[in-house]
């Protein structure tokens, strides 16, 4: 029973931190914490399909975009939409879509999840690595659709004046929920089945596991939270454009889950903080530098060079990341049992 008590205390502590941070921390620092919370939601769900189930996907940016657009369209008031859609008049359905914040982000999640289902059918029917290329392609396609359908998305101009409902109560609260959901999945027959698919697909099948179904469950769950995270991002930033959801977003998340350990949710938590913090600290690399009288021009992309080298080096020399595929609690448990 003391495990339950421990978990309740942890949850209470997180909630206390969220309330404390939202009310006392300066806006600049609070922005970083919000960013971490949103990226945590995204990375945790990305780890479910990539790490736990072992299906290499490059999905996030596409699903985040879907969630962000749905949420934005449902939150922006009708009058604002009429003014904002500059290229063509908005489609009637766009004007009708309106809801509360919670319904909006959940709708975004469900929409992303539904697309994931549609992609699952062609991709998971064949064994192999098509998921990666199909999801990579999907990230580009979604941008093409956003640009070419201005009556829905306002084209390349994007959407702005999205009501800024998302604060740390929302981002932190949903991150907490996402974490609990992922842990609950992992420590259930579904999590075991997903891991078995990762370890040995033939043996999993021989145990009666429907591997197609397990991959699809993982992929849809992942997409749902990417969509919700996208909705939070849209509301938090209050403006979105198609270019914002580039592959860069997916790449950041990939770094996080590799650093934390593919399959480890607590590792993802630690890595999200490290990588998001690192991104902030390395921001100077992209800007111009004046040091000891020497002048270096601004090099946008320099940070990404550093991060891609980091990713390659990690894969070559520290493939397991911080925690491998284990959770912090597993490590303590194993110490005791020995």
């Amino acid at each position: 029973m003391n495990k339950i008590v421990r978990n309740l205390i942890l949850i209470a502590a997180v909630i206390a931190f969220i309330i404390f941070a939202q009310n006392t921390i300066e806006p600049y620092d609070l922005r970083i914490i919000n960013n971490i919370a949103i990226f945590l939601i995204l990375a945790l769900s990305y780890n479910l399909i990539n790490g736990v189930t072992g299906q290499f996907s490059l999905e996030p940016n596409g699903f985040i975009a879907i969630g962000a657009y749905f949420t934005a369209i449902m939150l922006i008031p009708t009058e604002t939409k009429v003014d904002m859609y500059a290229l063509v008049d908005p489609a009637p359905v766009i004007l009708q879509m309106h809801s509360s914040f919670l319904v909006a982000i959940i709708t975004g999640g469900i929409a992303a999840s539904f697309i994931a289902l549609l992609l699952s059918i062609p991709v998971f029917r064949v064994r192999g690595d098509y998921l990666a290329i199909v999801t990579l392609g999907f990230g580009f396609i979604i941008r093409i659709f956003a640009i070419n359908n201005p009556e829905y998305t306002n084209g390349a101009l994007g959407l702005n004046d999205i009501p800024q409902t998302a604060n740390l109560y929302w981002t932190g609260g949903i991150a907490l929920v996402a974490f609990i959901v992922m842990i609950h999945i992992i420590y259930s027959k579904f999590g075991r089945a997903m891991k078995s698919v990762r370890d040995d697909e033939d043996a999993a099948t021989a145990m009666g596991i429907n591997t197609f179904k397990m991959k699809t469950y993982a992929f849809m769950t992942s997409a749902f939270f990417e969509g919700v995270g996208g909705g939070l991002l849209a509301s938090y930033l209050s403006t979105i454009t198609p270019d914002q959801f580039s592959f860069l977003l997916t790449f950041q998340l990939l770094i996080i889950i590799v650093l934390g350990g593919l399959g480890s949710m607590s590792g993802t938590l630690v890595a999200t903080i490290l990588v998001m913090g690192g991104m902030e600290m390395l921001r100077f690399l992209d800007e111009e530098i004046n040091i000891f009288g020497l002048h270096f021009d601004a090099h946008p992309g320099m940070r990404m060079v550093v991060f891609s080298i980091l990713l390659i080096v990690m894969m070559l020399f520290a493939r397991k990341g911080l925690l491998g595929d284990r959770e912090l609690s597993d490590i303590f448990k194993r110490k005791k049992s020995r």
Binding site: F56, F247, G301, M304, I309, I312, M315
Partner: peptide, 18 residues
């Protein structure tokens, strides 16, 4: 296999950004 795929995407991103 997943390690190889991740490395490949890392190389791709590296060349583009470099």
């Amino acid at each position: 296999k997943i390690s190889l795929l991740i490395t490949a995407i890392g190389i791709s991103f590296f060349l583009e950004n470099l």
